[in-house]
Design a protein around this nucleic acid. Structure first.
Lengths: 245, 245
DNA sequence: TCAGACCAAGTGGTCTGACCACAGCTTTTC
DNA sequence: GAAAAGCTGTGGTCAGACCACTTGGTCTGA
């Protein structure tokens, strides 16, 4: 059964994954040089490189030319950009719809906020509060404001101390970043929208701190779906935002 | 600013992504042959191949040797295995903790079930019901049972008609599949556990159909966290499940 | 005429060898 | 002793070659 995945790059990938699982390799460790890995596994260097490319876009390694301790392929674990890239590409290939991305963000964020509200005494919301203060700064461009906005929501996910959720939120957000910016540019009165968003953020944070689960959930729901509805992101098909405009 | 990402494979990746976004390429279409792509973009074939490898593990293309309409690289959009592989590797590299994966699954599934219960009149749960019947079959191995179990939960996500959530659920599940199977093997009385899981599934499904949001949420919560607690998956570190047993 | 065998072409899959740019280390030189 | 030069090892890339495989056409023979 199941010939051993004759493809050479898969051999390399499996080998490295098993080394990770066995603990032989861990964060900060160096992978063997490409040439060594190739001869060691009996494959060509190009096959090794294809596997390393996969590891790189998965956010598992960082490569550096040159010599010395910082060179070579080093194990890291930065899944955020990988998830973002994956989702962005899936959106591009029509595997994911923007509306589903938005709905998923709504789902996740609502659940996070509910969770935070339910144990509001044991969480640290200082980062979130700081970001809200930063968003009060006048003359923020929509781009800057939305970046802070994203960080605020990310800080909530991080407050729930769940790296997976935080990563997913980041990935979801970045996968539709382009569409979000497009939508902001099309708003009739950005300042008014920004003021409303600020107020909603405060409301959400206060509800969390107060431990008012239902209020936090409700306000989050309204906040997110309201914004996306305002920017028509939930109804527009992603193709239409480019040429038929 | 921002040198154009001198790396050749990135050029190829960006080129293909922009073709997807512009609509020049879509699901079912063929990518140009590797050699043509290489000369067209002014890069070597190996660089093209590195980019195609990324697209392949992202679930965006399927490659096939030979000639004819089925050969070459064809655009698909199957994100499930990609997300699963990505998360599995992140777990292996200690970027994600198994406990966080479990908690995220709990979060997502609870939200899905709550959503389904709130609009129980407009959803189709036939698939889920069928799977529950299939799980009644006697003499299912733990592996078979858990596969049906996963499909049941997946069918709930699919009933919510959100491809992104369904994909995430699949990815989350597959990323810890190995640990789940390990945990099942360590149960003292598998038949009793299976019976309990069956009953809980029925309870959840009925609560959804009845539109009882709170009951559906509660039962889902208990169902999932109960199982993972029973298999010690929420507390065990993934390293410890291999050698120190 | 038709069926089967055969062959040609085009594809991805892989390997090899070569060269480059770069970063760190070593040696030389002043 | 310090600065400069060279050496070494790394990833990044390219070019060419060969293989396995699939398809579609062509040839052969009944």
């Amino acid at each position: 059964m199941a010939e051993p995945e004759t493809r050479a790059w898969k051999i390399v990938l499996d080998s490295i994954e098993s080394r990770l699982l066995s603990g032989e390799l861990g964060p900060g460790d160096h992978l063997p040089p490409e040439r060594a890995l190739a001869s060691e596994l009996g494959v060509g260097r190009s096959s090794v490189r294809e596997a390393l490319r996969v590891l790189e876009v998965f956010g598992l390694i960082r490569t550096q030319t040159g010599s010395g301790p910082q060179s070579g392929a080093i194990i890291i674990a930065s899944p955020s950009s990988a998830i973002g890239a994956l989702m962005r590409m899936q959106v591009a290939a029509r595997g994911f719809q923007v509306a589903d991305i938005v709905r998923t963000r709504l789902l996740l964020e609502t659940a996070v906020v509910r969770d935070l509200a339910e144990r509001s005494d044991a969480i640290d919301l200082a980062d979130a509060a700081k970001l809200l203060d930063a968003m009060e700064a006048p003359q923020l461009t929509p781009e800057e404001f939305l970046a802070l906005d994203a960080q605020f929501h990310l800080s909530l996910a991080e407050a729930s101390e769940n790296q997976v959720v935080a990563t997913m939120m980041t990935g979801l957000r970045s996968s539709i970043e382009g569409y979000v910016l497009e939508g902001a540019a099309g708003l009739p009165d950005w300042d008014a929208t920004a003021d409303r968003l600020r107020a909603e953020h405060r409301t959400i944070l206060m509800a969390i701190i107060a431990g008012d689960r239902d209020a936090a959930t409700l306000h989050t729901n309204n906040h997110i779906s309201g914004y996306y509805a305002e920017t028509h992101l939930t109804t527009a098909h992603h193709n239409e935002s480019h040429d038929h405009g």
